[in-house]
Design a protein around this nucleic acid. Sequence first.
RNA 1: GCGGGAGUAGCUCAAUGGUAGAGCAUCAGCCUUCCAAGCUGAGGGUUGCGGGUUCGAGUCUCGUCUCCCGCUCCA
Length: 506
Amino acid sequence: MNYSEVFGKVVSHCKEYGFIFPSGEIYDGLSAVYDYGPAGVQLKRNLSDAWWKAMTQKFDNIVGLDAAILMPPTVWKASGHVDAFNDPLIDNKDSKKRYRADVLVEDYIEKLLEKARKEEEKLIKKGKTPEEAARMPQVKKSVEKAEAARIRLAEVVNAGDMHAFKRLIDDLEIVCPESGTRNWTDVRQFNLMFKTRLGAVADEGADLYLRPETAQGIFVNFLNVQKSSRMKVPFGVAQIGKAFRNEIVARQFIFRMREFEQMEMQYFVRPGTQSEHYRFWKEERMRWHLSLGIPAERLRYKDHDKLAHYADAATDIEFYYPFGWKETEGIHSRTDYDLRRHQEFSGKKQTYFDPETQESYIPYVVETSVGLDRTVLMHLCNAYAEEEAPTAEGGTEVRTVLRFHPAVAPTYVAVLPLVKKDGMAEAAKSIHERLKNRFFSAYDEKDAVGRRYRRQDAKGTPFCVTIDTETLSDGTVTVRERDSMAQERVSTDALESYLAAKSTGV
RNA sequence: GCGGGAGUAGCUCAAUGGUAGAGCAUCAGCCUUCCAAGCUGAGGGUUGCGGGUUCGAGUCUCGUCUCCCGCUCCA
C-alpha cells in the first residue's frame, strides 16, 4: 500500500472512528470546513498542548498570548493583507487560464503606450521635434486611448463594479495572451479575507475582517507583552488560534481549510542577529516534529527561492503527505516589516530600548508558524497502517492500527477484563477509576478480548491493561503494547508509574 | 473556476424500469480465560437534493449540491 492509497483510507477511518467529520453533513456539508469528533479533538488538543509546553514551558523567554479574532480594520491595511488578498479575477474559457483583471487592463495600457513611443521614435528619426511628434495623430490616438482606459480602470476599481470591469475588458477588445480569444468569464472579486460587520444593524457600523493569520495579534500587542512581562530582547510570544481564509480552491481534506488553526511564535530579536535565531528555530522546530515520532525521512526543509516582501529568509518544514511534499510549518525571518508598518499606521512608537547596547530600535522578528490541522493530518497519515496480525486460530488477518506517539494518542490506555465474570469486571473497573485520574483511560468489556484489542488499535490507544484470574490472586495485570502486541506483567501498584514512563520523549 | 469521475444503512458494496438487500460495524442477551470466534434478537434508508418521462424511477433524463482526480489559484 503506497502513500496515496493510504489517503482515502485515512479519510474514511477518520469518519468511522470519530476523528473528523464534514461540517454540517446532514445539510450536504460546507466545502473545506470540517468538524473534529471525540477522538480528533483529543488528538488535536494533545498536539497543541505539546506545542504550547514546548514553547512557553520549556523557554523562560517565551510567553503566551490569546488575541481576538476581530481586530481594527487598519491592522490589515498595515499588514498588507487588504491589498494582497483582494483580486478581481477573470478566466479565459478557451485557454482555461486565470488572470487578474486589473493586470490585463494594465498590460493593455502598457502596450498602447509602447506603441506610441515607437511611433514617436520613428517620427523623430524623420526629423520631427519631440513636441511635434507627440501631437501627430498616430501617437496622440494611442496615448489618448491609454489614458481613457486608465481612467475607466480607476473608476471600476474604486467602485468595485465587476460588471463594469467585464464591459471594460470587452470594450477594449482585450484578448487572452495564451489563446488569443475574447471568450471570457465574468470578472469576479476574490477576497481571501472573510468580511463581517461590527454592530448589530446591517447597514451601520464598520466593516471588519476575520483574521487571515494570527501573527498580527502578537505584533499589535508587542509593547503590552514586553512591558507587562518585563521581557528583554530576545524574547518570544506564542499563540494558538483560529484564522480564516476564503480560499478559491480548498482541497485535500483538512490540509487546506477555510477555517483553520495556527500555532505561532514570534521571536523578537536585535537587528543584525536575526540569522542566528533563524537558524536556531529552524533546527528546534524540526526537532519538535521528530520528538513526536514523525520519521526523519518524511520531513524536509524547503527554503524559499522567492521571498515575500517582508522576509529576508524563509523555509518550510515539509511533510511527505499522501498527495506529496507539502508545508506543515513555516519559519520566516520577517525583519522589522510588521512592527514598522504598525508604527507607521498607528502613529505609536514600536521601539524597544535595549539596556545592553543603550539604543532604541524596532526589533526584528523570527516567526515559527505551524498549521495545527496540518499537524493533525500529518500524524494521522503517518500513524495509519494496515498489517498482518495473528488470529486465534493460528492464521493471519489484516489489522488496522494508528501508531500515534503515546503523548498525542487520544486515549492513552484501555482497561479490559479478560472475561466479564469471576469479579474480573469489577477489578478492571476499579483500576480504570484509578487510572482516570492521571491518563485518558477507556473501559471495555464487550466482545472477546482480541476484538477489543483491535478496536483500541484502530483508535490508536498505545496500551491495553488486561485483568485476568492472576490479577485476582496476585495483583498483577498484563500490559499489551499496541505496535508490537507484546505483553508484559506488571503489578497493579506499579501500573501508574509504569505507564507514565512510556510517554516520555516530548 | 474549467474538464473528467462518483454519490444506495456508520463502512464496503448488491439490486433486467416492477416489494430496497448482503457482509462488516453498532446495541441487547447468551456463550467465551489473551489478539476481529459462535448463537439469538434489535435498531438503522424520503437511494445526496429538486424537477421531468412513465401505470411504475435507485435504475432513463434535466438541473443542482457535495466529494474525488487533473488543471488553475495559493502575501
